[in-house]
Design a protein around this nucleic acid. Structure first.
Length: 421
RNA sequence: GUGAGCGUAGCUCAGCUGGUGGUAGCACCGGGUUGUGGCCUCGGCGGUCGUGGGUUCAAGUCCCAUCGCUCACCCCA
């Protein structure tokens, strides 16, 4: 038996890295005023079709969609935003406060060919701010993503773009299509296809030959309406205020249809082709499109596999090590009988404690203590036991002291506490 | 969906033009140290060579299929 293609077990060795990413993210999100929302993994297929876009690759060929026992078309979420907005609308969250800040963390599913940093079940931290179209909010959101990466000890480059709005994008799109129409016979098959499905993406083609054809192509940033142009320059100056470095990339296009105005990506060069560790943008018409109030919003997602890969790749020392407070090494049946309830008592008092249950040699038990990175080892031998004592060894300094066991097993903990502080 | 590379011990890998699977390293267990970890040293445990066919006297090695992994394209976090 083996896991499905593109599905992966996260083993205990890797868990500390994952937990650290998650706890750091939560801390940052909370500091920026975001609250956690937990949303279902399954939704009606229609939700994703309406938000992400019928013609996108995700909806067209990557979703895990099936008919459930009641004959309903349901889908395992391929991203987080749609579900969060559905919940926002369903529970009228806009009625509680003018600006709603939400994040969710969990698995997403896309049937893609697995690759470095890309799995079929992957994990994202997804962040949404709903209720304002102020450009400072865009900058604040980007700043939060930036700050999270900084606190994780990772570096990435920030690229931003504006995709315009329903007032200016259609005209630009038409101008681009006109431009492409004259050159369609000279470009690669991918570009021919893209000009049908997502013309804005054509300009980002990697082929040098195609790039030659696109010299002088109309650029979205030159076709923004006054409102979008002002918004974009305000976003840029707000980022300047926060001293967050960015590059403007007029080719950057998102794969989801709902984006408007500001879009951004956080890119790394350390993950091969999967260079985006985080990306997002504004989606001002989406909530209304899903049947909710006419409210603007902006959000981003970060890929947890990619973050943990980066941390492991650079052997980050920031990830806290798993250690234990005390290992109890007991020698002989009488000592084990004394140690076993002591172990339980220490744990009940909040201590990370461990002991060997197999009656191994002291040498073996010391090795276990070392492997578990125990701060202390409490050695309970026949001799000490007879005197109601034990030996407490500081594993780093190798200093040992004889300690009274006392009637209450937890006195040992008090002693360790005192020694630690 | 397209293309390329790769599957040998828990992990990292040797294994030549087919001829008995490696005293390999790491990890694990034990001894050296009859009650003291990391270093050292000695020993031990551990393998359906991904799976199924085929060629051959003989296949880890060659061929086909299949599953999986990896990388890139596409797309995307």
């Amino acid at each position: 038996m083996q896991a499905l293609k593109g599905f992966k077990d996260i083993l205990p060795d890797e868990s500390p890295t994952w937990q650290w990413v998650e706890s750091t993210a939560r801390a940052v999100f909370h500091r920026f005023g975001f609250g956690e929302i937990k949303v279902p993994i399954l939704e009606k297929t229609e939700l994703f079709a309406r938000s992400i876009g019928e013609a996108t690759d995700i909806v067209e060929k990557e979703m895990y969609t099936f008919t459930d026992r009641n004959g309903e078309q349901i889908t395992m979420r391929p991203e987080g935003t749609a579900s969060v907005l559905r919940a926002f609308i369903e529970h009228n969250l806009q009625a509680r406060q003018p600006l709603t800040k939400l994040y969710t963390i969990g698995p997403m599913f896309r049937h893609e060919r697995p690759q470095k940093g890309r799995l079929r079940q992957f994990h994202q931290m997804s962040v949404e701010a709903i209720g304002s179209d102020h450009p400072r909010l865009d900058a604040e959101i980007i700043a939060m993503a930036w700050e999270l990466l900084r606190e994780l000890g990772l570096s990435a480059s920030l690229q931003i773009n504006s995709l315009g709005c329903p007032a200016c994008r259609p005209a630009y799109r038409q101008a681009l299509l006109d431009f492409l129409a004259a050159r369609l016979d000279k470009v690669c098959d991918d570009c021919k296809r893209r000009s049908e499905t997502n013309p804005l993406r054509v300009l980002d083609c990697k082929s040098a030959h195609c790039q030659e054809q696109y010299q002088g192509a109309p650029m979205i940033l030159d076709h923004l309406c006054a409102g979008c142009a002002d918004h974009f320059s305000a976003v840029k100056s707000s980022l300047d205020q926060l001293a967050i470095p960015y590059g403007v990339n007029g080719f950057m296009v998102r794969g989801l249809d709902y984006y408007t105005r500001t879009t951004f990506e956080l890119l790394t060069d350390a993950l091969g082709a999967q260079s985006a560790v985080g990306a997002g943008g504004r989606y001002d018409g989406l909530i209304e499109q899903l049947g909710g109030p006419k409210l603007p919003g902006i959000g981003f997602a970060m890929g947890m596999e990619r973050l943990t890969l980066l941390l492991e790749q650079q052997k980050s020392t920031a990830v806290p090590q798993t250690t234990i407070d005390c290992f109890i090494a007991a020698l002989g049946e009488a000592a084990v009988n004394r140690a076993f309830p002591l172990l339980h008592a220490l744990r009940a008092k909040g201590m990370k404690a461990a002991m060997d249950l197999e009656g191994k040699s002291l040498k073996s038990q010391m090795k276990q203590a070392d492997r578990l990175m125990a701060r202390y080892t409490l050695i309970l031998g026949e001799e000490e036991l007879a005197k109601g004592e034990a030996v407490l060894r500081d594993m780093a300094s190798k200093e040992q002291q004889t300690v009274p066991l006392g009637d209450d097993p937890a006195t040992v903990m008090a002693l360790i506490d005192a020694t630690t502080s």
